[in-house]
Amino acid sequence: MLRFLFRRLLVAIPTLFLVITVAFFMMRAAPGSPFVNERQLSPEVEKVIQAQYGMDRPLVEQYVSYLGDVVRGDFGPSLKYRDKTVLDILKENYGVSLKLGLSAILIAALMGVSLGVIAALRQNKVADYATMTLAILGVCIPTFVTAPLLVLFFASRLGWLPTAGWNNGALLNMVLPVAVLALPQIAIISRLTRAGMIEVLRSNYIRTARAKGLPDNLIVRKHALRAAILPLVSYLGPACAGLLTGSLVVEKIFNLPGLGKFFVISALQRDYTVVMGMVIVYALLILTLNLIADMMYAALDPRVKLS
């Protein structure tokens, strides 16, 4: 186990390095500059600013010193939000994204697995068709359509829920964003579970268990579910990526103080340091999740050894 962890960490470092390098040079290759605005600086003043941020040096030199800073945990000041450092922005906003993402994945797993199991157990019955239709719809309707429709209905029309805002993470404020984030994931997870379950239920060991006269209830819970969930675990990484993309939309529509919106805005405003900080954090997150997924996989499936 430890050896496995160590090996994966060794791979993670060059991966992260690659991410930083590609992102750094792509960002710098982009036309425009963080210091160009409607109101323009005189050339003298602009030179001063460039020097303040070390942007008057050759690009490679800036890159090397940036790497050094990152290793020391210094992500630099934001070029656009001049009262804040990149670390400030990350610290002040990661909580909301994390809370949203975790709630969404939890609910998606709960609902998705339940729906998938029901569909599998009632294959080709109404419940099955209903679940699978829902699953296909969930994948086919973009989140930026579901979000405003849900807001219009549950918030503006019925008045049950707030239309937007975070309000320090009040439960009611979380319902709609989490639902919008979770819906496509529920769709995918229920499909995965259903397929896995059907496969497992047909396998010999389940037949044996059933032949032994074990109650169905127990078979599903103890044997089938465990095996059927395996493909789900390896879906964790992509699911995280999905939540990430979803959060860009959800944070925008629901006006939430999360990290996602800073990425798009900062990329458009050429706030190099903030973009880099976001890229690094998300790459780290995905790497970690993949690692966790691998470990869970091994824990659930005795056939897989971590080597």
Binding site: T15, V19, A23, M27, A241, F263, L268, V279, I286
Partner: peptide, 22 residues
């Protein structure tokens, strides 16, 4: 395949956005 695994673990949406911006 290691290359594929590595690329899998990149936040791709970010790269697409960066590509668009660049």
């Amino acid at each position: 395949m290691r290359v594929v695994d590595t690329l899998y673990s990149l936040p791709f949406i970010f790269f697409v956005i960066l590509l668009m911006v660049t």
